[in-house]
């Protein structure tokens, strides 16, 4: 028993030192800010801060908006990914570029663009407003739209990657067995890209939760209606640093919990 452990220990080769050092530096980029946050946390006041109206309201708005954006991304993003992966058409490269644009575009620019498009006086927003009375900015819908804009690319990319890696013979086999396209999609394609879909959903949700720039530009900032956790942190940083730290801590805890939990169950695809 002991012997076996020894030999397997010996077989493990130590990774190159340079890599270990650089990797540790890389990790410190993520860990250092976290330590800074913990160092400034007013632990004694934390219970009060965490149950304050600002925090509870922001948490509620953030959860609604991030889950809403994830749901919309799934409903619209999966078909988009399917088209991109499976249909050859002219300008596909352009469409793909448009889809990933929000990844490189500063979110504030995205928010402004959304305002010009879907605002009350926007290109689409104005006729829509006149026809239906709907106003997106300064409402929870604005928050959801802004979050969807910045987060959906993660879902599309992930699902498209899954579809491209999926051996199309499985779908062919299902067709020869009498399955129509819809059945193939439902019973073969979607289940088989499950890990990619799950990873895409997790990333989309995480990105939506952290969204700031597009939200404050497009949806504004009002506690209880449009003020998400990141917005509340931003505002609180200038007035109540304790609350800002508490809010930040909540975001860290929620995100880490969800991402780690999902990683264990799903993340084979990433």
């Amino acid at each position: 028993m002991t012997k076996r452990t020894d030999s397997s220990e010996r077989r493990k080769r130590r990774p190159p030192l340079v890599l270990v050092v650089l990797a540790a530096l890389g990790l410190s980029v993520f860990v250092m800010p976290l330590l800074g946050l913990l160092a400034r946390t007013p632990w004694r006041d934390l219970p009060t801060l965490l149950t304050s109206d600002v925090v509870v309201d922001a948490l509620r708005v953030s959860l609604i908006a991030s889950l809403g954006a994830t749901a919309i991304s799934a409903v619209l993003g999966v078909p988009l990914a399917w088209i991109l992966a499976r249909v050859e058409f002219r300008g596909r490269a352009i469409v793909r570029g448009l889809v990933v644009l929000p990844l490189v575009l500063p979110p504030v620019v995205g928010g402004a663009a959304l305002l010009f498009a879907l605002g009350r006086r926007g290109l689409i927003g104005e006729p829509l407003n006149q026809a239906t009375g709907l106003v997106f900015p300064f409402s929870i819908w604005g928050v959801i739209i802004a979050a969807t804009f910045v987060a959906m690319p993660f879902l599309v990319i992930s699902v498209e990657g899954g579809l491209r890696n999926l051996d199309s013979r499985y779908e062919g086999a299902a067709a020869t067995l009498g399955a129509g396209r819809w059945t193939v999609l439902r019973r073969v394609t979607l289940p088989m890209i499950g890990p990619s879909l799950a990873a895409g959903l997790a990333l989309t949700w995480a990105r939506a939760l952290g969204e700031f720039g597009a939200t404050i530009t497009f949806a504004g900032n009002l506690q209880g209606r449009t003020q998400t956790l990141p917005l509340a942190v931003f505002v609180a940083l200038e007035s109540d640093r304790g609350a800002a730290v508490a809010l930040s801590l909540i975001m860290v805890v929620i995100s880490l919990t969800v991402l780690i939990a999902l990683r264990q169950r799903w993340w084979g695809a990433l």
Binding site: I216, A219, G220, V235
Partner: peptide, 11 residues
């Protein structure tokens, strides 16, 4: 009846 509290006067 406030609808938004902008982070600065320019916004």
């Amino acid at each position: 009846a406030v609808d938004t509290e902008e982070p600065n006067v320019r916004a």
